[in-house]
Design a protein around this nucleic acid. Structure first.
Length: 283
DNA sequence: CGTCCAGGTCTAC
DNA sequence: GGTAGACCTGGACGC
């Protein structure tokens, strides 16, 4: 399928795909040798590995078997979600034309790699809070192992006992939060997929609902908003703050000051901030 | 060994 | 609305 954004703009994952994206899979799932990206998902009730590669502006998707028409539609949907092809960055690229800090990004940068499902990203994001990155990968590796190679769906997490979260995944206080969200999806009709812009809830309402989830505060909500395609909020955490100071050659800057610095990018302020911080990832 | 803190959040004032 | 303290875990660090 064509690798273009919703506005026909270029899409590039030069570095993010193979490395640091939040949705990056546990070690072993990412092939560092070839410019491709593997992910295991459940299709037709079976765990299937999909390999994404890019050639001449086309996204090539290879599977390990033949697929039904239903599965093919699902694959297309997964790819569109993961690579954020529903997101229109053309207005942003027009905005940064000639911008000394961000003009480079017009070649197609700015799409934080997403998981096949919004649910996955919410849980993954909670696993990034208040811990070292090594703990994040440990927790997510355990989750994917529980899922048999793919990220576990809500019903599997809902029926997995508390002891597993505490003793196997070692998620500490996050375990009950994750189980609560999974249980609400299964039993209370909570549908995180409706947070996607196409469902029309509206930016403010989506943010409100994210913040209402246990374990999701300002940082996690900002990260999810970015993944969902709402680019206004700045992701402010213990990595982005010092990274900004270093790149901007400043001694200190309050969150308010940082926000003011990026306010010129309007509804794309958060994306501008993220690209400012991750520029070297794309070189 | 104890303390601090890492890509924060929640509760109680 | 703003702020202190607690919170699982485990690696880094000082003593």
């Amino acid at each position: 399928m064509p690798l273009r954004g919703a506005g026909g703009e270029p899409v590039s994952f030069s570095f993010t795909i193979n490395s640091h994206g939040l949705a990056a899979l546990p070690p072993g799932h990412v092939d560092e040798e070839t410019p491709g990206y593997d992910i295991a998902v459940a299709l037709d009730g079976k765990i299937t590995t999909l390999r994404f590669t890019e050639r001449d502006g086309m996204l090539i998707i290879a599977g390990d078997r033949r697929f039904t028409a239903t599965a093919e539609r699902e694959i297309r949907s997964i790819a569109t979600r993961m690579f954020r092809l529903e997101d229109n960055l053309a207005p942003f690229y027009a905005m940064i034309d000639g911008d000394p800090d961000l003009d480079w990004a017009r070649s197609g940068a700015g799409r934080m790699l997403a998981s096949p499902a919004v649910f996955d990203d919410v849980i993954r994001t909670i696993c990034t809070t208040n811990c070292a990155w090594s703990a994040t990968t440990r927790m997510i590796t355990a989750l994917v192992e529980l899922g048999g190679g793919a990220f576990p769906d809500p019903s599997l997490l809902a029926r997995t006992p508390d002891e597993w979260f505490a003793d196997v995944a070692r998620m500490g206080y996050r375990g009950p939060y994750v189980r609560k969200i999974a249980t609400d999806v299964v039993e209370q009709g909570l549908n995180l997929e409706t947070f996607l812009p196409q469902h029309g809830l509206g930016e403010d309402e989506v943010e409100k609902r994210l913040l209402a989830l246990p374990g999701v505060g300002p940082y996690a909500a900002a990260h999810m908003m970015q993944l969902l395609g709402y680019h206004h909020r700045l992701i402010l955490d213990s990595w982005t703050r010092p990274t900004y100071l270093k790149l901007a050659n400043k001694k200190r800057a309050s969150d308010t000051t940082i926000r003011r610095r990026f306010a010129r990018y309007g509804k794309f302020a958060g994306l501008a901030f993220w690209l400012y911080l991750t520029r070297r990832w794309h070189e």
